[in-house]
Design a protein around this nucleic acid. Structure first.
Lengths: 349, 349
DNA sequence: TTGTAAGCGTTATCAT
DNA sequence: ATGATAACGCTTACAA
């Protein structure tokens, strides 16, 4: 038998569809315990599973949230997704995940698909390309709650979950300065994404606040993809251009690992000659030699909070209450490992 | 306006719902080109998006496939998912992704949810725990096509996409033997998963075929999670137990990287003293020092083929043709890197 | 306590 | 070439 429906249970038991429906949902005072028990029993033996699509048509709820991210082949995003999935599951929501592959056009298309599915709400981390937000505003106008996380657009009127990239970068560079580093290079991301800009600004501010003159030639742009290759090739340039550089703050762990790889190859000692500081705390950072000092960017919590806020807003709307958008900043922290100079230990050795 | 529907377009244009529906779908000969153009125009201005749930109720198709995997925070699975997403998108299907977190009970629950959503078909890679397949057989009985990939159960009657783990392992160990290694340890996965068993059997067979006596004490079980920690701690044991071991074949890159990490720490040279061979070709393998020789397990293709077969079967069923299940073996290959002895290069240096 | 019937948005059959 | 209408599976207001 293919997918039993309410009427199948009803005829099998000789009662009405209404009774079956009420019995299964529970919370109705007007169905006797005995019939209720019988219905539930029968549902189990006939392996009844409610048809979510039909349910939606009546209730206007799909109990589904849609997620659009640039890519899932990315440690950070896969952790974020985990946070989203856990929160959604705990609160009885499905999750549909779509990738934008860092393409604006695809992002638009994916949102369209989610709307066709009539998801109850949408979580999004936008692409680096995205600079027109009409498709996001359309979602909001459509009364579908939207929560942005990680890669957000400040201008869009919705709740957001972010980290403070500027502060985190500031802390990282200050940490290097405190350790005695003076000539600190920065491998930045490309010019458009907000977090790339913010990390750069944090770097610059930390230098200024510590009376170190900002030197544009110490800034290298990783605009390919802010990945391993970028780090590797720019590290090559760096040591050619500046033989006296004593540390690098990289926009991403992947870039930092590219740097480490190159420095290892040409036998420059890390951190004794050049210290390296990453960003994100990917698993890989614990595995590379030397292990990488980095900023922990708590992906799981970001995902969880984003989902939680979205589902809260859904509840508010259902209860006909006003939704107040909020922007949550998840705190980051420095994870100190081998790739930065640890004065004490070095002195002991 | 919240989500325009057919009737909104119809009243706006002064035509019937039927006409609008036909015009939008296309392929109907009985609607004039002029009205058709008008309808499409109006659909655009009113931002009409069909309600997928309502469509399903009529067509019995959700154009959605469900995917259940142990975890997505895993390079291999995230690549597989990419393959699935690409194929599904090209062929006009949605994808709902659920995680089982390696828990049998959760796997069952996730399948239930997919059935409630009335997905057209299901792709699954089962958990290591799963040894009862009633929930999978129920899907099949339910006439929902099922395709298993990577972690499969031979006994379940459906199409499958796999790699030949035994052969791949056999090739890996043969490769080591050809390079002159004689005392080859194996860090295997736990006892239940089929691919862990198969890789072990391939290892054993390669030894036998090359007249190397199988030594049980050279086999270490990574049963925690077949992860980095397992590799690291077992490497410690290995060098204590066998000071003359000359190579290790690891069940997974992650385990291999744990080994490399430990050997690096105690200054054992790789590959000169001990060669290391991984399995899966994770990105990390290209980044670790020395880079890791491994088996390339083409995740993208696995995902793509699995999705393709599933969607093909959907089409067969729709056309009322018989479905013939197939088992596809995606070929693997050896990726040679620094962690195994390369006779020529070493001699040159 | 139980049942009848309308309606959700769409498609498809049958008239016009 | 266009439209009226039934049907998909479910929930719920209302009736019995």
């Amino acid at each position: 038998m293919i997918n039993a429906k309410l009427i199948d249970l009803a005829t099998a038991l000789g009662v009405s569809v209404t009774t079956v429906s009420k019995a299964l949902k529970g919370g109705y005072s007007d169905v006797s315990e005995t019939t209720r028990a019988k219905v539930i029993e029968m549902a189990k033996t006939m392996n009844y599973k409610p048809n979510a699509n039909a349910v939606y048509l009546r209730t206007n709820e799909t109990k589904t949230i849609g997620v659009v991210i640039p890519t899932m082949v990315h440690h950070f995003f896969s952790i974020v997704l985990n946070g989203i999935l856990e929160e959604a599951e705990n609160r009885g929501y499905f999750v549909i995940i779509l990738q934008s592959n860092e393409k604006y056009e695809l992002e638009k298309k994916q949102i369209d698909l989610l709307i066709q599915k009539r998801v109850d709400g949408i979580l999004i981390s936008i692409t680096n390309e995205t600079d027109d937000f009409a498709h996001l505003n359309a979602i909001i106008k459509n009364k579908t709650p939207l929560v942005m996380f990680d890669k957000i657009a400040k201008i869009v009127n919705c709740s957001k979950v972010v980290i403070n990239d500027r502060k985190a970068a500031y802390d990282a560079v200050t940490f290097l300065i405190k350790k005695g580093h003076k000539k600190i290079a920065h491998f930045r991301g490309s010019y458009t994404p907000q977090n790339s800009i913010d990390r750069f600004l944090g770097y610059k501010k930390a230098l200024e606040d510590n009376n170190i003159k900002f030197d544009q030639t110490l800034v290298y742009v990783c605009d390919k993809n802010a990945d391993f290759e970028d780090g590797y090739s720019n590290a090559k340039k760096l040591v050619q251009d500046h033989d006296d550089v004593d540390s690098v703050f990289a926009v991403t762990d992947l870039v930092a690992i590219g740097i480490i790889k190159y420095l290892n190859e040409i036998k420059i000692e890390i951190p004794e000659q050049i210290a390296v500081f990453g960003f994100s705390n990917w698993f890989m950072s614990t595995v590379i030699s030397p292990t990488l000092t980095t900023i922990d960017q708590p992906g799981f919590e970001i995902g969880q909070r984003a989902a939680s806020i979205l589902i809260d807003e859904l509840a508010e709307i259902k209860a006909n209450r006003d939704v107040i958008h909020q922007t949550i900043e998840i705190p980051t922290s420095i994870i100190e490992r081998e790739s930065t100079l640890r004065k004490l230990k070095t002195e002991l050795i």
